[in-house]
Amino acid sequence: MLQGISNEAFVLGCSAIGAGLAMIAGLGPGIGQGIAAGKGAEAVGRQPEAQGDITRTMLLGQAVAETTGIYSLVIAIILLFVQPLLAGL
């Protein structure tokens, strides 16, 4: 089946698969941010007067938790658009 496929096409296809696999890392930040938001909602329910502080802390923590997901996104973008593996052919 792989006969007659050019090297470039093979590398590009594998890069696309790699980019898709890299984005599985999006699971982690999603779960983490969900937990943070749930705890934030709990905290607001317990102490409604501190809503501003709680929201700010929650958003900051979520942004830091997002970092791993952003790393995978950057790797996927590099694989798809910069195509560094083609240079190795």
């Binding site: 942004a63 997002e66 970092t67 952003i70 790393y71 996104l73 950057v74 973008i77």
Partner: peptide, 10 residues
């Protein structure tokens, strides 16, 4: 820098 870049670019 990756956080800001990734969010806007994505």
């Amino acid at each position: 820098s990756f956080r800001l870049f990734g969010n806007i670019m994505g």
